[in-house]
Design a protein around this nucleic acid. Structure first.
Length: 567
RNA sequence: UGCCCCGUGGCGCAAUGGUAGCGCAUCUGACUUUGGCUCAGAGGAUGCAGGUUCGAUUCCUGCCGGGGCAUCCA
């Protein structure tokens, strides 16, 4: 039945792509693919939304279609324009462009109202005066059928009148609702006369005070899809049981062409993080983090500030795939994705986080040199930069050990040991100075090998280790924010009897100030990415000022040495 | 114990009636002026029990396990 569509290399399709290809093969909707991304503007977007965005926009792109951005703003009590703005920024930043202007479910309130009247006239919707408690009680339970509301058999005329007066504002909040008349005995709870409208006398961020009745999700969403001509309405699995209702509304309204089809997929779960909007909001409100875009947050804005790139997020979304089974993605995969991208693009630079002074005793005092070092060995066109070198250097404290534990495997500095200073000379440690009180090493002495200069090394020496360094005179002091995962538990939100806040990692942020960087980074701008050689990827934070740069650790480099030494 | 969905290496995702494959992770080895990168290789899986079939990951039945559904939230 299927012909070899495009190429000889049939990339395997996810189940949604299969549905779309089937539809196109059958000529459904004239082959058009129109998807939508429908966030509720009541919070910031997170990495789970990124999956959905990539899915919806990616699918449309793949099949020559388009994607609408539609704000599902049917609950004025929780929604706000602050969120609208951040959502648009995040979608754009991820690299996607929606079709036309942003859309709003509230744009369709008039149309929805007319459709509701259509259902009332058909005897398929009624006004119910029951209280919310009564409605809840009469709905039954998943194992027991519900019972009919005493108001269920009101006449069409009475329903029309009451509904008009609901809209006109004659009744207080909660006093009446409009319900679809379906089946109070349905095994599907969502079909037990679902509520279509409730009365809320509240100011709406777009429609102002025009309305005091607001449509429920089920009533607004599918009809919005239909009005826009959405072909494939993709949502997460928890809406699966809503699908019969989605279809019921479509079946009982004048026909739409195209008629949207709801397709559900499994939402993203990431280890060591929470994705619940409610919990994310709590972290922000209770100041456990410094805001929605705190670099430890799984929000798109947080990841951006942390140093994640749009490409890395898109690749991540591609890699995790799309299916219908519950899943937990290892946060390591997200980290892999950003390393993969940054490795190709980030300028290499040297920075010392935990400095100890290295003095080259045979290097002339007052002498300096400029070492030319490649900006990115992965990028042949990346060019090189000059890095000042002198007699006194900062090196990483952990790169010198008085007594290396397993000497044969220790490639770095120690008494009488030789290493290469990246892009400069080979040196040999000759001596070191300790603080008599603390026992801490305060100074390391070494001799450099003049013939070993990088680029024209005639020394004939071979060393296993290369370490990074920064010249003391010209070192640029900066602040470095070393981020670690926000939670110490793989599933912080998954414990029945323990609050997720108990798993907050107390060491999720460690501030290093000063760290010393080579002077070439001076003038770097927020969101500029660097690799601090042998350390990790870092990104300039917007807290940077003219006299002090602030860097966020995006992710550390893979560290096989750390892995080895743990064993 | 009602209805719906889902069970493939440690974690994701393929294979849709014809030799179970890919990515990440793990472990070797090579290379390396980043213990990064790259390259080469290795180990490891169809929840269980029946049935249909020449042949089931795939189709059917039962069981087991996981998830969802009882907001005037989305």
């Amino acid at each position: 039945m299927s012909t070899n569509e495009a190429s000889a290399t049939p990339a395997s399709l996810n189940f949604i792509e299969q549905i779309v290809e089937n539809d196109r093969a059958n000529g459904k909707n004239g082959g058009v693919v129109l998807t939508r991304f429908p966030p509720e503007p009541n919070g910031y977007l997170h990495i789970g939304h990124a999956k959905s965005i990539c899915l919806n926009f990616g699918l449309a792109q793949q099949y020559g279609g388009a994607t609408n951005l539609r704000f599902d703003d049917t609950n004025p009590l929780t929604e706000d324009t602050e969120y609208v703005d951040s959502i648009m920024e995040d979608v754009r930043w991820l690299g996607f462009q929606w079709q036309g202007e942003p859309l709003y479910a509230s744009d369709y309130f008039d149309q929805l109202y007319a459709y509701a009247i259509h259902l009332i006239k058909a005897g398929k919707a009624y006004v119910d005066d029951s209280t919310s408690e009564e409605i809840r009680r009469m709905r039954g339970t998943p194992t027991e059928p519900g019972e009919h509301s005493p108001y269920r058999e009101r006449s069409v005329e009475e329903n029309l009148d009451l509904f008009a007066r609901m809209k006109a504002g004659e009744f207080p909040d909660g006093s009446k609702v409009l319900r679809a008349k379906i089946d109070m005995a349905s095994p599907n709870m969502h079909l037990r006369d679902p509520i279509m409208y409730r009365i809320i006398h509240a100011h709406h961020h777009r429609t102002g005070d025009k309305w005091c009745i607001y449509p429920m999700y089920d009533w607004a969403h599918g009809q919005s899809d239909a009005i826009e001509g959405i072909t494939h309405s993709i949502c997460t699995l928890e809406f699966e049981v809503h699908r019969p209702l989605y279809d019921w509304f479509l079946d009982n309204l004048p026909p739409f062409d195209p008629r949207p089809r709801q397709i559900e997929f499994a939402r993203l779960n990431l280890s060591y993080t929470i994705m619940s909007k409610r919990k994310l909001l709590q972290l922000v409100r209770e100041n456990h983090v410094a805001g929605w875009d705190d670099p430890r947050m799984p929000t798109i804005s947080g990841l951006r500030r942390r140093g994640y790139t749009p490409a890395s997020l898109r690749n991540f979304a591609e890699r995790i795939g799309v299916a219908r089974r519950d899943n937990v993605i290892d946060v390591g995969l997200l980290e892999f994705s950003v390393r993969e991208d940054l490795n190709k693009t980030a300028t290499r630079v040297m920075g010392v986080m935990d400095p100890v002074k290295l003095i080259l005793t045979n290097y002339p005092e007052g002498q300096t040199e400029e070492m030319m070092i490649e900006n990115n060995p992965e990028d042949p066109n990346g060019g090189e930069r000059a890095v000042p070198f002198s007699r006194e250097l900062w090196i990483e404290r952990e790169d010198f050990k008085e007594n290396p534990p397993s000497p044969k495997k220790w490639y770095r500095l120690g008494p009488d040991r030789m290493v290469r200073l990246k892009g400069a000379y080979i040196i040999k440690a000759t001596d070191y100075v300790k603080d008599p009180e603390t026992g801490e090493i305060t100074e390391i002495h070494a001799e450099y090998i003049p013939e070993s200069r990088s680029g024209n090394d005639t020394s004939g020496l071979k060393v296993k280790g290369t370490i990074h360094w920064v010249s003391v005179d010209t070192a640029l002091p900066v602040e470095v924010r070393q981020y670690d995962r926000l939670f110490s538990d793989p599933d912080p939100g998954g414990h029945k009897d323990r609050d997720f806040l108990e798993f907050l990692n107390p060491d999720s942020l460690r501030i290093i100030s000063p760290a010393y960087l080579e002077p070439s980074v001076k003038g770097a701008q927020p969101l500029d990415h660097f690799q601090f050689i042998r350390k990790g990827y870092y990104c300039v934070d917007r807290d940077s000022t003219a006299d002090k740069l602030v860097f966020n650790l995006t992710v550390g480099l893979r560290d096989n040495w750390a892995k080895m030494s743990q064993k």
